[in-house]
Design a protein around this nucleic acid. Structure first.
Lengths: 365, 365
DNA sequence: TCACGGCATGTGCACGGTCACATGCGACGT
DNA sequence: ACGTCGCATGTGACCGTGCACATGCCGTGA
């Protein structure tokens, strides 16, 4: 029965149209949830689609609509392997898919301008409609401008500085939380180990640290520039322990905190008796570090979701809303096309949360 | 000068053709590295392309060639946030991009069949030319068959059981390495904490463990089914310590090993004096666990790269090789199109490596 | 009764590439 | 000297969709 329609190629709307006894345009209307189609006609078309296992051809659609329905993620490969970014990426993909979008990723070497340009060009060649940047952002933006790529973009995890493009976990507030916690425990000699300087969130955490320190009138030492890795934390820890003019360290991510604790244990010291350590992110392993790490939790998944609603809100909502008053519907495939496009996304700032575990305590003296 | 050619749309090959004084087909030939184009003509076309900032339209190309040049990754969202899979994914993307392919990801809830089907359908709708599966594989394959999706696929990290689709880190060898290490230290009462049973590599590591145990005539206890998480390791550890009829545990990933060590410390015991712990994967943090973790290192990035060369070798190499004898060139964009497509990929099995650190030692008695 | 508007549907073209098939021209063998 | 072959290039159709613009029909108000 269906064998007859087999002709090598996958079925097109015209094949469906022929079998349903309508024009190809009617089929197209069914696909796009056009309002004025008689229910019976629609049903007949849907039946034929199912019978033929028809799938809309993405390329053809993109060609004529000039819309790729694809979001790009530009990610530093050194970080996409870490819990936080990886969780956000997963959430981005999920939210995008729910909204009928595809997600395409490009990993770059953050340190190499050519790599940035290459990755960006790769995404641009795809006609992405939105871009999420998880990388040292200053350089990326320069390159973006140079290549005259013009798509809406969002930077994951930045501070509220550029409110159009930055949806923020309030990194500053999180850093202040961490710092305040140490100060309230009685620490006065506190170091801060930051992330790389061209990561906006590293800078934000540093700012939060400095703000809280001066707000509480605690004398500040210069932050130490780190690179997010546990290895780096370990080496910095070894250096710092030579002098030991501190009782607490605030590391701007959990990995570096882990490295610090390693160095401290190696020196025969105890956490938190001799030194208190606080991290940032609350990766799932942090609860099982020894000692379990006090840290600041971020909701990475929520962050990813908001990225998408920001991006798709920009790109989609206007035309979408204009097109049809009542029905949302979107432009998903006829078969799938589930729930509403995500809700207005709530307040714009995600507030991070202090998680007190066993790596912080009162200073010994 | 260039202002004149601005007409809203991005430039097409016809625009380029007009300005270069050739036919659109000649432009197309330049794009596809056709052999018989006069160097001067080619150069003229390339110049115009540069001037116009011409970018080939992916959708149009895909429409007519029936090739999407896209690879799909189906990944369990619970695992894509972990170091190993994430590294492989990054490597896959890099290798794919170098070969002129795009990568699109779908994260699924491994436990939910509907989610699997949804993710797979999403990728299929894109016309992916290859699929990498990083998820409990049994269910995925069933679904793949049900949806009658027919693309070459590769399972990341599987054992050598199905040699066509499995490019293997030799998980069995790795597990034997770990087990032998414990036995050689003098341990006789060894537990094994596995990954979820429907993950092929979890099963492979378990097999390796069992094989080595019986090869060395050490009595075996039933493996404990885990879920890859540190939390789970922690809880299992607490249970096991009630009886304490063992001197060593082989955890099939580093996270679970971490959880185990946490439980052991909590009980006031010492690693490795009271219990030896060995992990698997060698995530970057493992060197900084307390104590630094003995584990088995896998080259995740190499694994990812091989995935791609396997997939693209299948899909591309035949026609590619037939097309032009000498020049590789690929079908990248005229402007970009860098280095050779990856080399023949070497021997098919990646051999993992034992990394001895401080979490294993001789049993106390 | 008829013009008119809205619904349900159909017709043809455009999107930006590639492919199959010309075409013109110079070199070469007989 | 002429047919033939290969190179360099051009012409037109086609891929599967969506859009702008008909078209026919029915209900409605003047």
């Amino acid at each position: 029965m269906t064998a007859e329609s087999q002709r090598g190629r996958p079925p097109s709307i015209r094949d469906v149209a022929r079998l349903a006894g309508v024009s190809h345009q009617t089929v197209s209307r069914v696909l796009n949830h056009h309002p004025s189609i008689r229910p019976e006609t629609k049903q007949r078309v849907l039946d034929v689609m199912a019978e033929l296992q028809y799938t809309p051809n993405r390329a053809a659609r993109a060609l004529v609509t000039h819309r790729s329905r694809t979001l790009g993620i530009l990610s530093a490969s050194s970080t996409s392997t870490q819990y936080g970014p990886a969780s956000s990426i997963a959430a981005i993909e999920g939210a995008a898919r729910a909204a009928g979008y595809w997600v395409s990723t490009a990993n770059i070497e953050a340190s190499d301008p050519a790599s940035i340009a290459d990755g960006l060009a790769h995404l641009a060649a795809q006609g992405i409609e939105g871009l999420v940047v998880i990388a040292p952002q200053v350089r990326v933006f320069d390159t973006l401008a140079q290549l005259s790529i013009d798509v809406p973009y969002v930077t994951l995890q930045s501070t509220g500085r550029d409110p159009d493009h930055a949806l923020s976990v309030d990194q500053i507030a999180g850093a202040r939380l961490a710092t305040r916690h140490l100060i309230e425990l009685g620490h006065r000699n506190i170091y801060h180990l930051t992330g790389p300087q061209d990561w906006i969130e590293a800078e934000a955490r540093m700012r939060g640290f400095l703000e809280e320190m001066s707000a509480q009138d605690v004398p500040t030492t210069a932050p130490i520039l780190g690179d997010w890795t546990a290895d780096f934390g370990f080496h910095v820890g070894r250096e710092l322990l030579r002098v030991r003019d501190f009782t607490a360290i605030f590391a701007s991510n959990d990995q570096m905190a882990l490295g610090l604790m390693h160095a401290i244990h190696d020196a025969g010291l105890d956490v938190p008796r001799d030194v208190s350590i606080i991290g940032f992110d609350d990766i799932p392993e942090a609860a099982h570090f020894w000692p379990p790490l006090t840290t600041v939790r971020q909701d990475f998944a929520e962050l990813g979701r908001r990225c998408v609603s920001l991006l798709i809100g920009d790109a989609d909502a206007p035309s979408e809303a204009a097109a049809s008053a009542g029905g949302p519907g979107g432009a998903g495939d006829a078969g799938t096309a589930p729930g509403e496009p995500s809700a207005p996304a709530g307040p714009k700032t995600i507030v991070p949360e202090l998680v007190v575990r066993a790596s912080t305590g009162r200073p010994a003296f």
